[in-house]
Design a protein around this nucleic acid. Structure first.
Lengths: 209, 209
DNA sequence: TGTATCCGATACATTTTCGTATCAGATGGA
DNA sequence: TCCATCTGATACGAAAATGTATCGGATACA
């Protein structure tokens, strides 16, 4: 029941992490709702005893796993944006092509996020968690995008609005792309939409390139 | 196992429908994965015997329910679009304000669609179902929107692209609005994004109003 | 090295769920 | 009205999942 140990050992951390990793795989394959404690334990190479020593329930594990992955994802995002070569950007399309690869469209993660969203809509407590994470994502991307736009002579009057728009477009188009991954037209239209949104949310000021 | 009756009676249709209705409620409340045959039967006022006489499994029911609701939703959409008063539309914002109410943002339905999406990503056979439905939605809305835009002097060069964009924006912003339903700013930015997208995908031709 | 503490495997009791088989009653065509 | 057919409640067995209790072995710290 109580999963907080008095003395934290190295082993415990490893066990916990393996269970978190197994959860991602199992939930993606079976869906969270259809997954069981035992399936996660089997995949991780442990037994239920280890599980209940580390987590209170499947729900508990789901939340912990989702938060950890989200944090990692945002960290990776920041890193990718930091290490970008911004020299070659000359127009809005260039901004899209530079930034898009930093925000991967991942099948596994999308499945899990879909279910977590449904889960959060049912549990008011989780809504705040999702909202916070969305703000973190927008907060990481928007300043970088705005800076790039400025480099090509465009100002962004309302960064918050742009952030919300980018997240919405990303989520909405990701579903379309994953449902038809082999259709390049869908991916092209996605990039197109990003380009038009960036253009629509910024103003040509004719500043230096 | 075989759920096709030799003679179709009125009663059977009613039973089937009540089970379909109950499924919507139960799946929305508990999530599809955590729902059981018995919960659906209880809600519908039947026992498991009736269930297995009408459906092969929970999966079967989920698909049937989703397809029925989707069809109804699209029919309702067509009707709403047909019965619109298009006289007062003078600009792009007017188009948004006229069309938006026809596509409701529904909490219950969104939960179910999220889970169905995850389910479809796992089940290649269901992808086609989702894709077909998305095309039907885009196919219902896009011509109407394009006609409205023409009325205010704007042409739409690529209706397919606009359709995909509208669906993506709708889905993406719906999640944001449902996670923060009491925040009017989120809804306002949603309408804003629609307006900018419509503007970006159409060209001013200066035609008659 | 000693030992207090923690970790996690095993076993178990309980509860839930599933799908089928059965059968009394309802239904609707002749 | 009659009766072949369909409908759906009940009962049942098998399987799966949950959470707990126990206990040998591992680990951290003095």
């Amino acid at each position: 029941m109580d999963t907080t140990p008095k003395r934290v050992t190295k082993r415990r951390g490893e066990t916990r992490q393996r269970l978190l990793d197994a959860a991602l795989t199992v939930f993606a394959e079976q869906g969270f709702g259809r997954s069981t404690v035992e399936q996660v334990c089997d995949r991780a190479g442990y037994t239920r005893g280890a599980f209940y020593s580390n987590f209170a329930s499947l729900d508990d594990l789901f939340l912990a796993m989702w938060e950890q992955r989200s944090t990692e994802l945002i960290d990776g995002l920041r890193q990718a944006l930091d290490g970008m070569d911004t020299a070659k950007v000359r127009n809005v399309r260039g901004v899209v092509e530079l930034v898009t690869p930093a925000v991967p469209v991942d099948d596994t993660w999308y499945r899990i996020t879909s279910e977590f969203t449904a889960h959060a809509l049912r549990n008011p407590g989780l809504r705040r968690v999702m909202k916070t994470r969305e703000e973190a994502i927008a907060g990481a991307i928007t300043p970088v995008v705005a800076a790039l736009l400025r480099k090509i002579g465009r100002e962004t009057p309302d960064q918050v609005a742009l952030g919300q728009a980018l997240v919405a477009v990303h989520d909405g188009t990701a579903a379309q792309c994953l449902l038809e991954p082999e259709n390049p037209a869908v991916w092209r239209r996605r990039a197109d939409l990003f380009e038009r949104v960036l253009t629509a949310y910024s103003i040509e000021t004719g500043g230096r390139s």
